[in-house]
Design a protein around this nucleic acid. Structure first.
Lengths: 152, 152
DNA sequence: CACTTGTATAAGAATCATTCCGATTTACTT
DNA sequence: AAGTAAATCGGAATGATTCTTATACAAGTG
């Protein structure tokens, strides 16, 4: 799935083409990490001066309904990323600092089918949290700096 | 872990015994399912007329810090349940209606250790969602009723 | 190209969960 | 019983998200 395909999908489903939608999708395509509504606002703020949260939230949920974005909830915030590919189920390692992700191709539901008497399963969530290479290094540097200047 | 052990833990750590804390823990012990702050307020409202959300939230996070409760985030709400047992790592099937849970003894991190170059893993979440037997039946009944009276 | 119609957007109010704050009350120590 | 720090109350503040109403715009039609 790329930006053009996503815009086509919108058209197919009877939604209109707008520059804001295009730019939102372009942003998610470029970043390929989890972004919150406020990140989107920040990124598009310069180009669209009066861009409203309502527009962002409305489009984020529209894109998610259409399978263009995938959503998760992290730290009390809804976050979204470009859908990796519609054809294969997968999970993510997620960087808690920057939202960057890496694929996990295995799904826990595959090797040990979850079953419990009377319980009707309709979905699951498997996410691994941590820090990506860059953010991890940044953290180490901060620790070092703290040791050098322990007080204040 | 039971209510008495939890109250002892509080005392050990230098926190005071209060009736509200006791009753909150008793509630979680009785219910053994995920509850949100407002559920706690509702349950204790009759006994403590002016019970404030601040008290509930403060104690919920205290209990969670001490490992007495475990927390998750579902549908934009923080939810808490009595910690099943401190001695073995586990996951849950969670009923999306009533918050009731069942154990999953297997952990996806066990059979396929997640590793990705440069990514520092610090935690994970694996939850299976669905409907418990009671809530599932309730849903079916509602569906049946809708078919019987399709309009209105 | 101008017109029409319904969708998209802006701006700000409203809502919901959660946290903060100052004043008061309570549990525990001596 | 008095002193002290912790716990609670009540309400205000915050932050994310949704709703509402009026206006702007995209896209199909003549």
């Amino acid at each position: 799935m790329n930006v053009d395909q996503a815009m086509n999908k919108l058209k197919e489903e009877g939604y209109k083409h707008t520059d804001k939608r295009l730019d939102m999708l372009q942003l998610f395509s470029d970043e390929s990490r989890y972004l919150a509504a406020k990140d989107v606002l920040e990124a598009l703020h310069d180009k669209y001066n009066g861009l409203s949260f309502d527009t962002i939230y409305r489009n984020l949920s529209l894109f998610t309904e259409l399978g263009i974005l995938e959503a998760t909830e992290l730290d009390g915030e809804k976050k979204f990323r470009f859908s990796c590919s519609t054809d294969h189920h997968h999970h993510h390692l997620i960087c808690l600092d920057c939202g960057k992700t890496k694929h996990i191709h295995e799904c826990p539901m595959d090797h040990s089918p979850i079953y419990s008497e009377g319980f009707k399963v309709i979905g699951h969530k498997f996410e691994v949290y941590g820090y990506c290479e860059e953010c991890g290094k940044l953290k180490e540097d901060i620790e070092k700096a703290k040791k050098t200047i322990p007080e204040n």
